[in-house]
Design a protein around this nucleic acid. Sequence first.
DNA 1: CGTGATGGACAAGTAGCTTGTCCATATAGA
DNA 2: TCTATATGGACAAGCTACTTGTCCATCACG
Lengths: 148, 148
Amino acid sequence: MAEQPALQFSALVLALAGELVQGIHTRVVAAGFDDLRPAHGFAFARISFGGATTADLAEHLGVTKQAAAQLVDELVRKGYVERTAHPTDARARLLRLTERGWACTRAADTAAAEAVAPYQRTLGAERFAELVGDLAALGPKGPIRPAW
Amino acid sequence: MAEQPALQFSALVLALAGELVQGIHTRVVAAGFDDLRPAHGFAFARISFGGATTADLAEHLGVTKQAAAQLVDELVRKGYVERTAHPTDARARLLRLTERGWACTRAADTAAAEAVAPYQRTLGAERFAELVGDLAALGPKGPIRPAW
DNA sequence: CGTGATGGACAAGTAGCTTGTCCATATAGA
DNA sequence: TCTATATGGACAAGCTACTTGTCCATCACG
């Protein structure tokens, strides 16, 4: 069974991703941001990076422009994002996180750190760092998004 | 920035999971099973394990019984799954893969192996095996499912 | 044997996404 | 500079996977 490690790898990564999303989401909700779903996190990631328009966001998330526009509408309505004028393109609106949006981003970062902490403890800081290094070496280049 | 590796870890695992799902799905479709979506794979995993009822499947996938029933209906309609009498419970129906269902499962395994192959090549067989070992040590116990 | 739990089905509603169309503005070529 | 094509964004309608709610038949436990 030469491909056994490969199958194991897929299963482990998928299971791990599921646990991570679940763990992070639970903590973010507990932190008071209970009107968001995990998918919103991926939008925050792109918007906080800066310079994002709705179309950029759509491409990043791998959905249509309209889906992205609806998502942005929701985030604006809930006070996490605001649309500002684009400096050079009169058609476009630049997306920007509000203070509440930034607060949520910080909460998500904390949540991620907490969710990963047990893993770090299991392997030890050193071995965990190696693990991260190896994963980084695989160079997953795809945008971080809920792909199914 | 002590929590930097933790954040990196989350991002990497999530990106990797996305790429894997995408890669596997694409290959499975290319293998002729183009009437399935990635989520179906998680159902196949449980059903191929054996002894699954619709309710078992629902719990495994983390959805309601009705959602699972609809999914099973679809898989039965498309010829991947059949409902058989349960040996000891007259209420329940035992789910079983058809030959086509098994063929799809084999195709998915092959697809997973192929999708992971480049990673194996990048790290080398030895280091990759270590990586898998470390991931396994983290013991992601959650059911493998699309969690968002 | 009766009472609560469980597997499953039917019906209706919802939310997130899609396709299709349109307009205003930007960009490139003659 | 004028024209053609591409692009950001909005409006409308529809689809699909999922939900909640209800119900029945059967199981399991006192």
